[in-house]
Each structure stands twice: as structure tokens, then as C-alpha cells.
């Protein structure tokens, strides 16, 4: 069996048509993992020990079971106790929660790297806990781990074919159907690989750039991005000087 260009060109649009679905599922799951990961990070640091302990075991449990098993559990087993999700939601939530446990580790490493003095200064300035988290700690904890977070976006993207197991029509599912109908798998599966490469590679380059930027200081970043912080503050100065 040799490569058939005509067949490949013919089926390419069919497989590629799943691109928006794949992108949608990836970003949906990524959003879930970023937010739920942050929630897990907070819960794990809760001063209410049973909650912190429970969260720790939840993370351990989710990380040490395969996502495919979790997916089956969510889609096929949960309806037994009355929770029925459509396949897209089940896929997004399962992948999102699975990766949330990794993302939570990334957040944790970022938070641990913020010097103790920042917490103490926040206390001395009498900030509330929420203010301390969102205005002092996280703005310092997250930029250095953006490359690591970005990496999980890529990993998550490459994990989307498992959704085929519950009938989500992503690249592999489409290719599989075409392959089965025509008894030719070489072209469809190759195209799937090619599509993943086409989407992954630019993202990897982008993450590399982010990584370089995150190594620069705050002042350098400000200049590069031309952030408006200066503008607004500068305005306020002028106003106060004028008044």
C-alpha cells in the first residue's frame, strides 16, 4: 500500500474540520485546570486541617489514576448516581480536573518561591488575606511559572484523543471513521499527526518566548509591553499636583 495523494487531499478537510472542536476542548479544559488548580492550591493551604488533608488526598488520587479511567468513570459511572453530563462537558471537566492537580503543583512551586518577607510586609501593611494573595503573592508567584503552565497546555492538547473513547469527534475519531470506511489508515492517521504538529509547534515557540520574557525583571517587562501602569499613576500625580 502506498501513499495516495489524491485520497489524502480529499479527506484532509474532513479531518481538519475537527480543529475547532479540538481547540475548544483544549482551551475549555485548560481554563478548568487553571481555575480549579488555583482553588486546589488554596484548599491545600487551608488552616482547617481536615480540608487541607482531604485536598491533598484528592490530588494524590487524581494524579495516580489514568485519565482514561477517570473519563469512563465520569461519563459512564456517574449517571448511576444521577449525574449525567454530555460527552463534551464530561471530557472538558475530566481533562480539566486531571490537569488541575498538576497545575496546582506548579502554582505551589511559584508561591513557595515568593520570599517570606513579602508575607510579612503584607501583614505589616495590614492588608487583608485576599488582598495579600491577589495583589502581592500571586502577581509574583505566577509570572515565573507561566512557561510551565504553558507546557501543560501543550500536554493537555496532546491528550485530547482520549476523548474518542466517549465518542467526541476529534481528529483521531474522524480519521478512524474515514479509515474504517475506506480501508485506508495510512493517510488519515498521518494527517492527524501532521495536524497536531502544526498546532503544537507554534505554541511551543510562543511558550519559549514567554520563558525568555519571564526571566527579565519587572522594569524591563514594563518597557517591553508598554504597560499602562506608569500612565495611570503618572496621571494621578499630575492631578494631585494640579489640585
Amino acid at each position: 500500500m502506498t501513499w495516495d495523494w489524491q485520497f489524502a487531499i480529499e479527506i484532509f478537510p474532513d479531518i481538519a474540520s475537527a480543529i475547532w472542536l479540538v481547540i475548544g476542548v483544549t482551551f475549555g479544559a485548560y481554563l478548568v485546570s487553571l481555575t480549579f488548580g488555583l482553588i486546589l492550591t488554596f484548599l491545600r493551604r487551608s488552616s482547617f486541617k481536615p480540608l487541607a488533608f482531604l485536598t491533598y488526598w484528592f490530588i494524590e488520587f487524581v494524579r495516580s489514576t489514568p485519565p482514561l479511567v477517570q473519563l469512563f468513570f465520569v461519563y459512564f459511572a456517574l449517571p448511576a448516581i444521577g449525574i449525567t453530563l454530555n460527552k463534551y462537558l464530561a471530557g472538558i471537566l475530566t481533562l480539566g480536573i486531571h490537569y488541575a492537580t498538576y497545575v496546582s503543583e506548579v502554582y505551589r512551586s511559584g508561591i513557595d518561591a515568593v520570599p517570606k518577607g513579602q508575607w510579612e510586609a503584607s501583614r505589616a501593611m495590614n492588608f487583608t488575606k485576599i488582598h495579600t494573595w491577589f495583589r502581592v503573592i500571586l502577581p509574583q508567584a505566577i509570572p515565573p511559572v507561566i512557561p510551565m503552565l504553558g507546557n501543560y497546555l501543550l500536554v493537555l492538547f496532546k491528550e485530547t484523543p482520549i476523548l474518542m473513547a466517549i465518542g467526541v469527534g476529534e481528529f483521531l475519531q474522524e480519521a478512524q471513521l474515514i479509515g474504517a470506511a475506506n480501508f485506508r489508515y495510512l493517510e488519515p492517521i498521518t494527517i492527524v499527526g501532521l495536524l497536531f504538529l502544526l498546532l503544537s509547534y507554534p505554541s511551543a515557540i510562543l511558550i519559549n518566548k514567554l520563558e525568555k520574557r519571564s526571566k527579565l525583571g519587572y522594569s524591563a517587562n514594563k518597557k517591553q509591553k508598554g504597560m499602562s501602569v506608569v500612565g495611570t499613576d503618572g496621571e494621578a500625580v499630575k492631578q494631585s499636583a494640579g489640585g
Binding site: 518577607g117 510579612e120 510586609a121 505589616a124 495590614n126 492588608f127 495583589r135 502581592v136 501602569v229 506608569v230
Partner: peptide, 26 residues
Amino acid sequence: GMVFQHFNLFPHMTILRNVTEAPIHV
């Protein structure tokens, strides 16, 4: 109020914001 041995300024804020942050929010 307290001043620390190692300054503990907020590195992600401008000098002005370091000083206005607490008056505004606290």
C-alpha cells in the same frame, strides 16, 4: 508600622504604588 532589615518592598509595583497601596486599600 514596621521597616524590615531586607526592605521587603513589593518588587512588582512601582515605588509610588508601593507607598500608595496600603493608604488606598487599607
